[in-house]
Every structure is written in structure tokens, then in C-alpha cells.
Design a protein around this nucleic acid. Sequence first.
RNA 1: GCCCGAAUGGCGGAACUGGUAGACGCGCCGGACUCAAAAUCCGGUGGUGGUGACACCGUGUGGGUUCGAUUCCCUCUUCGGGCACCA
Length: 863
Amino acid sequence: MQERYEPAAVEAEAQHYWDHQHSFEAKEDDSREKYYCLCMFPYPSGRLHMGHVRNYTIGDVLARFMRMKGHNVLQPMGWDAFGLPAENAAIANGVPPAKWTLDNIANMKAQLKSLGYGLDWTRELRTCDPAYYRWDQWLFLRMLEKGIAYQKTGVVNWDPVDKTVLANEQVIDGRGWRTGALVEKREIPMYFLKITAYAEDLLQALDHMPDWPERVRTMQANWIGRSEGVRLGFPHEIGEGGVLYAFTTRADTIMGVTFCAVAAEHPLAAHAAQDNPRLAAFIEECKRGPAVEAELATQEKKGMPTGLSVRHPISGEAVPVWVGNYVLMSYGDGAVMGVPAHDERDFEFAKKYGLSIQPVIDVDGRTYSTEAWQPWYSAHGRCVNSGRFDGLDYQGAVDAVAADLGAKGLGEKRVTWRLRDWGISRQRYWGCPIPIIHCTGCGAVPVPDEQLPVVLPVNLVPDGSGNPLLKCPEFLHVKCPKCGADARRETDTMDTFVDSSWYFLRFACADNDQAMLDYRVQHWLPVDQYIGGIEHAILHLLYSRFWTRFMHDMGALSFNEPFTRYFAQGMVLNEVFFRRPESGRVEYFNPSDVVLSTDKSTQRRVAVLRADGKEVESGGVVTMSKSKNNGVDPQALVDEFGADTARLFMMFAAPPEQSLEWSDEGVQGAFRFIKRLWKAVHEHVSRGSAPPLDKSALSEAQRAMRRQSHQTLAKVADDFGRRRTFNTAIAAVMELLNALGKFPQESPQDHSVQQEGLEIAVLALSPIIPHVTHALWQALGRRTALIDEPWPEVDAEALQSASVQLVVQVNGKLRGHISVAVDADEAAVRAAALAEPNVKKFVGAAPVRKLIIVPGKLVNIVV
RNA sequence: GCCCGAAUGGCGGAACUGGUAGACGCGCCGGACUCAAAAUCCGGUGGUGGUGACACCGUGUGGGUUCGAUUCCCUCUUCGGGCACCA
């Protein structure tokens, strides 16, 4: 065995071995339990970032651990290869998105390989391949047939200069990112997927997913947003007469209605604006406003009276109708009943425009004031000032109001959802073409199955103005499949979330060019463990759950839920350094160009730019991003320290679901630990080979050492398998190694105990640092390959101990420790605790009021 | 604005089911080795008081439940994620 640890050689050797043995190629095999471990596939941006490394290391540790536990593991990898960045790169560099994307994939694949992940590359897929996206198209046509895909108009951001639809991230302060032109909103025809048809099921199933994080299930439930309430009608004689409908969850406050507010897009608003130019202008202003919910919700609440009024459905009194910029056309009926006394937004609106405020709920007899909003104003209570509803509680009032309105034909109980249908049309080039042909005679005609795939031309270079597919006659001009007349191909492509909504299915059968799925899906799916960023906790996961349900309902899948267990990993953060020149923009400096030191006199930390030796400011620790220039290139790390150090640091620095702070010193520490492990094995084997362990003839010290080895083994298995806390598993092995280092090496049996401890350390760490442990396993004299080694059994005998340490508290404060026999009875424990000198001092002459014994843990004496 | 999280030494974090707060690592301090430096090894390291045994204080804020709270409940503050065309 070599004395020095040289990661480059060790890693090349291990990776070569795995490649040569095809160690990670998964075969269907009914004799072993399958384990499908999947990490979210990357967008091929060009280089791996630390978030990828973290994600894939977590997945690889679990995959390797489950493999050792005897499972038949599938861990595949692919590329989420369509998307906006490829078009942005094309605009910047004049390179077609296809070339840019494929080059990036080649680079990133090499990086993934250098990190030693146990991936089955025979199943690799790219969503930009026609062999993949033809099934996007095929399934879209099935959705059309079932009425799950349909066409309606949707709102987009329009750049009037570039004549291009902009993504939300391309709109900066209401202006186009390239032109600076004021962005307009436009309504255009789009395709939608009716995810709302599955709302109830998507929500209820969350209760039966115990292996998803609670917070993710809560986020999804809130996103779906089931509200039980009452849809009520305000009759009116405006135009041809009719009823203004509004949904409310607070029908008990109906007698407090002092106004109604409708969205700018509401028909009543349009009607009122016909002969009211000021109102028309206000409606236009609202329509131009932000499309993003976060901005909509934080903008100043504005409104304008329509001059129209509707009749209150109970009292028959006239209620004025306003247009409000805070009313969403997409929720409920696009109108709200205004109850300023019991809704904070209505309160704010009424105060601003001098509308009357009418309290109708009594909350524990508290005094209501119209001066300032108090949180309890929106609490449930009993109806007052509400005529025949007076005295009713929340549920009673809601029932009574619903019954009353029902009798009049002006409303009923109703469930409303926050979830909206999924608009999938994108007016962009680099995506999966929507398989539709537009014919002047026949309308929108689906492309026949036998003409699939509709292949995307790969050599176009977008220039930022308009969709390049519109300028591509070979693509655009086509015959109508129905009547044969000249027709035009749909140039919109699909949202990239479509591609990622089913890729996990395709990994089971990526080589099948005849069908979307085959029998192997039944073997591998559902995914046993899905791992990915918390930022995907809602959209991607919800879309995938919806997609799986649709395929189940069409008979293609036997299961409803695609991911049995989901793990949400935390973000990777790093400190950000910058200078703010007196004039001009803030300049960010990469942390690798900054030198940190501590000023001895002031104890202040000083950050200096290496290039000019002058100070830079610190902006705190934030998510690694291009814009803040605080990313660390994983490749540099692998080149300098090796993949094992990168993997070990990532797993040790923080628990995997929490955010992780980058630290150069931490990386050094991980490297140092691997070197120590290497050295420990080297010193051990240089003493010659160990004789077999004789368990019947061990000293107390040897037994204690064995106990720690096996306790560590049990803890690591629990941390990997149940808790998913790799940081504490590593800490436990570090402790074991520290103890082995202090363990005397005098007798042959000492040597054997040491051998066993080192073998446990190597096996326990092998899922995390697979390369170096591969080499150390051989060095320890084992002739098998570590990759095929099973997870070792804990020796129950080694865990046994004759005595146990107890903590003794007096009035809840720690006062001493006692050691008692494992099988000591309560009286013996009590006596030992009261006899402890320091405990005696604190108990003194006071009578013992109560004595609590927690077996195996502590004694608390209350005096 | 709404929804979901998080907050513990100089720093990252540990304490798993309400039971020893600070495991493990980093940094720092002291020492060994060295002509010297790096690397490595050994020892120390929450704060205050005390020569010391030890005592008191201490888990973002303020309150509550409990024999006992970092852990459970309520309040507030700050930071992070998501908000439907970034992926």
C-alpha cells in the first residue's frame, strides 16, 4: 500500500473498475427488491453547479447504501434539454440552441463521471431528442381526445418593439429586457391542460403520502387551495339584466356587505366603461399592470366606482359596484363582495375610498372600531346586526344564508379552487412543437399519430424578435391532414414542464422506439426515492402527479403517484463580495478572488481583492448565483482535492434538507479527514495481518472498543436509511476513527479489534467516498471488490454492557452522574442518586417531594 | 401581500420520542517536530466569577405549559424558498 493518499490515481482506478464491470447497469431482476433512486435531471446550462453536486451526491449515497442492503438499484440520468437559456445563448453568440445544448451536455456528462456517481448511462435521455418528445406530442393528442387538453385565450407579456412574447423573467420593472419598451399584456389563443379536473384527487392523496415531507404536502395543499363557501348572486338590471356572482368563504358576514368589487376584465366593468372614459382608462391601467401574483398582491390597492349598483340578495338594498385592481378574474367569478368590517383588504379599500363599514360579527363581545384594522376583526363569532341571522355562529349562519339564497335561486354552497388549469403554449422556438395544424377550412386539426413526431428544425438561430419558426417555411407550410388544403403548422412549443412531467417513466424503457412505455415501467416504477430542490416542491411535482394520474386513467399505468418518497434538499449558499462605486453599477467579485484575514487589533474580519489588495464589502451569505458572482466551480474542487473530498464536504457541512454554506476551510477539513483515514489504514496494515478475532477472550478495553465500532455501524445505518442525516453519520465515523487512533496496539487481539473497526469505518463511509474506500478495502487485505460488498451486520453481543451512566438532576438542574448496573431496580437507582456527594449538597435537609426516574437516562429529584 | 420553512459558541452544525446544550468539523490559542515554513502530531477553547473543586448565566424576542423546554403552544423580529412563461 502506498503511504501517500493520491486522489487522482485512486479515483481513476475505482471509476475504471466500475465501468469495466458495468457495475451500475440495472437489469430487471425479480429475485431482488427493486429500488429506483432518482435525482431531478439537470438543465444543461454548461457546467455543473454546487446544487447539482449536492443533489447527486445525496442520491448516490442512498443508491449505494440501498445496493449494499441488497436492493436491485436503478439510478438513471438524463437532460432537461429544452428551454429559454439556450435561446438566450443563441441571441448572444449566434450559435443554434441545439449545438449549444449538446455541447453543454457533453461537458456536464464528463463532470458527472468525474464525480464517481453510480449512474446507469445506458438509459440516458434528452428531452430535445425527437425520440423523446414525440411522446409529449402523442400524449398531448390523447389529452385532446379526452378533453383534458383544450384551447382558450391566455394572457402573455408582449414586447411591442421586438414583437415577441416575453417570459416573466424577461420583464424588468415592466419593461422588455432587451428593448426597454413598456411591456403590454395580450390575450392570445393557447392550449391548456385541465389539471383542475384532478384537483380533489391531487389534494386528498396528499393525506396518504407519509414519505413526503410535511412542508411540501402543506405547500401543495395550499396551492391547490380548496375553499368551501357560498356562491351568491346580486341581481341587477344593468344592460339586459342579470346576476353578479361572487364567491365567499364568509357568507356569515353577508349583512355587512357595503360594496361589490369586480376585476378589470369583468363584463360589468366593460359595460360601465362604455360611456365612462375615466373608468375605461382605469380599466386599461389595471390590465397593463403586473401579471405576476407577487407584484399584484403588493401593489397599492386602487379602485373606481362604476356608477352601477346591484341589489343585496337578502336585504334588497342597492350595493355599489366598483372595479378593483386587487380582484382576480381567474379566481371564482372575478368578483368579490366587500365586507370591510371583517376582511382586511376590503377594510383598506373602504377606508381609502370612504365606503361605509358595517360590523356584523361579535367576537367574544369585543369592541369594534373603524379606526384601525385589528387581526381579530376577521375571526369567527356570532352574527349581530344581521336580522334573522342574529345569534348564529359561523357554521349556522353559513348554512342559513345558503338555504335562504338557495330558496331564491340566488346562490348555493360551493367548493372553489385556487388551482388554475395549466397553460402549456410557449411562443418560443426551443421546445417541443405542439402537434396541431391550422386550416382555414377545418380549424385546428390534430396531427395524425402516424405523422409524429413533428420534428423541430435544429439549425435555426433566434435573434430575439419573434419566433424563428414563423420564418421557417419548411416547417410552417403544410397540408391539412383532413382536407388536403394548404395549411399552417402551429408554431407554439410546449412548456418545458411538460417534458419533465414524465421523464421518470421513460428511464425504464428509454430504448423503446415503438411505444412511449412498456412492461419495464411496471417493474421499476413508481420511483422509490426522488431527490431534488425545494424550489420544485410545488409546480414540477404537482404537474408530474397530474400527468401520472392522467396516464393511469387512460390505462397506461397501474399507479397514481409517481414518487413514493420525496426528499427536498436545501440550497447551496456562499458569501457575496462587492464594491459600490460612487457612480455606476455594483460590481460583484468571486470569493475565489478575495482574501480573508482578521485584523489583530480590532478583531475585525477584512476582505481584500487579490488583484489590487484593496478592501471589498461583504453582502452576507446568499444562494450561489451567476448574478451575484459567488458560485464555486465543482470542477476546480475535484481537480484540486478529488471527488471524494467534494462529496464528503457536501455531506458533512449541513444536514441535506437545510441550506449549506460554502467554506474553503471546510473542504480542507474533509480532505484532511480522508488523509487521516488513509494513514490509519496504512499504519495498521504495516504491522502485518491480524489474526481472527477471539470474542471469548477480550479485555474490558477491547470490548469497549468493539462496542463503539458496532454502535457506530448501527448509527450510520440508521442515519442513512431512516434519518437521512449524512452529516451525523460522518461525525460518528470520525469519532470512531479518533477512538481507534487512541486504542493501544499491543496484543494480536488489539490488532484484530483494530482491523474490525477500520473495516466498519471503510464500509460505513463507502457510499459517501466510494473511490478511496475502494482502495482501502483492498489495502485491508480483502480480495472482494467493495462495490459488491453487502452492508455489514451489527454484532448484538458487542453492544452489550454491564453498567450504564445516569444523570442526576435536582429540581431539573444537572448536579451529578452515577453509574449503575443495567438491571438495577428503582430502589437501587434512587439510593445511588441520593448518595452522590454533589447531589447530597443540593438536596441538603429538604424533604424529597418527588423523584422521577427515566430508565437508562436520568434521575430528577424535586425538593 | 399570501403560502411554506429557518434562527443554538468566533463559524458550519449536534442534541433522534420533552430528559446531560454545544457531539463532529472549522477557526483560534499553546506545545512538539523543523535552520525555517508548509504538512503532520499532542493539549486547550460558550460567557462571567473563582487559585480551585465549583457556582451563576446561556439555544433570535416576549409570554405560557411542565418536575424538566433548543424541542410543545401563543406573540413579535430577522433571514430563506415559492407565487403559475427561469428551470
